[in-house]
Design a binder for these strands. Sequence first.
DNA 1: CTGAAAGCGCTTACAG
DNA 2: CTGAAAGCGCTTACAG
Lengths: 339, 339
Amino acid sequence: MKLEKKVSITDIARKVGVSVALVSYVMNGREKEKRVSAEMVKKIRQAAEELNYQPNQIARSLRLGSTKTIGLLVADIANPFFGQFARIVEDESFKAGYTVVFGSSDEDDVKSAFVLDTLLNRQVDGLIIIPSQGSVRQIRDLIKRKKPFVLFDRYFQDVNCNYIILDNFKATYTATRHLIAKGHRKIGLVAYKTSLIHMKERIRGYREALKEAGLEHSKYLAEIKFSHSFRDFENSFRSFINRHSDIEALLCANNGLSISSLYYASQNCIRIPEGIDFIGFDGGEPFDLYSTPLSYVRQPIEEMGREVVKLLTELMNDSSKVSHIMHDPELVIREGRDC
Amino acid sequence: MKLEKKVSITDIARKVGVSVALVSYVMNGREKEKRVSAEMVKKIRQAAEELNYQPNQIARSLRLGSTKTIGLLVADIANPFFGQFARIVEDESFKAGYTVVFGSSDEDDVKSAFVLDTLLNRQVDGLIIIPSQGSVRQIRDLIKRKKPFVLFDRYFQDVNCNYIILDNFKATYTATRHLIAKGHRKIGLVAYKTSLIHMKERIRGYREALKEAGLEHSKYLAEIKFSHSFRDFENSFRSFINRHSDIEALLCANNGLSISSLYYASQNCIRIPEGIDFIGFDGGEPFDLYSTPLSYVRQPIEEMGREVVKLLTELMNDSSKVSHIMHDPELVIREGRDC
DNA sequence: CTGAAAGCGCTTACAG
DNA sequence: CTGAAAGCGCTTACAG
């Protein structure tokens, strides 16, 4: 028995001596509705089994105009935060009968456009997008084409579309207040230099908390240019730290920056919390294994991921509503352990 | 200008007043070969531009019998090791004109079969698979169907197919010898209980090194049942550690086990390397940020990832050869720092 | 240099 | 209860 060429509905029809319509009906479980005789059903099922028939989704997609595929555009799938997110998206999508195609933008709008085009040509039914800086036009285009999508993690203020994000202001506001309450006065924020709203909001939350407490709110803000290279981060961060050797506590504005800052600290013998107190973003294994328990801002990523897929599937079905959903962050406080 | 329904090659043909064949030729850059007049080419290009034409890959795929899509079946995309691998696969695939669809098996053969079927129905041109225990039949089926694929990380001894793996024996053999050379005698290995060859080989490498040194080679071997829950790991590991309080050094057989063991150690005030010496697997951020520099077995994952895609693209083109490629591990030794 | 037409594998009105 | 046929959007021999 060799299976050189794949078997189609036509092969089954021929074998049973019946039309392809019948086969299509029973393969799609519509034999009741179409009142196919029990005998036929049995014969067709058996033939399909014997020939080891596998439906061709591509042909089905072309005919139906729907691929049952979701496109996922992340900044970088190798980043644990996005990897975790991708996993949730995958699980929920599969449950809903969708498959997921992904691509990484590297926070670069040219690459983002390329990946987006590729996914669109593949006729994805909908998209989940972590938009990168400068990708507004791409998003606008999606709206014009009436392609369902939901933004995650960030959005654009002047584009009215679906998004699910963290309450970023509250995240850093709460964290900063916590540091102030602990008695710190010289509190730094390590953020990325970007026009993206999530960063802007995180910076605003930090500043607002400092202002309310009557503290310096610009001096200790490090806005670092995005780069995949630790060297680049290191150079910027070193000059920041050297300029402000009196800094008492550090808050980081996302996961990558937290990891890089911690790495810098451990390489440069800066002790936490004795030397500098610290609050990170997003948690993860590096946080759990750090020499001292680290506090961090937690995003309810499971819920958010589930909700993104839920919203998108709704959009792919009726496509009229526009939701802006914001989730509350949680400040996870961890204190020194006794060993 | 609204773009309700997507524009097709037919729309362009109609607009220019020409046949669809011409349009197809110029859209595929075959105007030279087909000697389309320069004037036509210009008109068609312009019309495509004006109508904002986007080719429909699905239709193209159906016609050509190739989707330019690679299926990636990993154990868990949220696992940083696989996330990193996925990123390399993504980059190389895009470069080669392929898009990637993925799914996680959770090391479960039922889930693996389901994901595999989904990807196959989507008519992927080829597959990259981290095979889970009990998925031999699925792999055999792929061969029977002549679907190009390459296994990564593991393989099955009695199935002759393409794979790219680490020299697993050498990995643990070298690491164990290093621990012996440091003077340790009671050396433990934390491994998963599985029939998968990569684990078997890692265990064999460990044992062989101990045997050669005339040391106990079974007593300190922990074979732990795979689970996503840390609690499960903790229970098994605790009883192992309690039974062997005299253990001097620990080697871990993969990334997940390394992280879990380190977490257990930090939770239970076991100091590394003073209490127990340690060598992990695969490295990563948790390793870099650990309170003390950790040694580990490094896989050349970038090279391996690139090679997997290269091999697969070759297979998708001629499909005759069978390669078994094994990469050398590298033992990364890191000593205490001075702060 | 250009066009008419078949066909990839499926679904689905429309007849009977 | 079942079949013949159109059509999804594309590519590609085959004519001319």
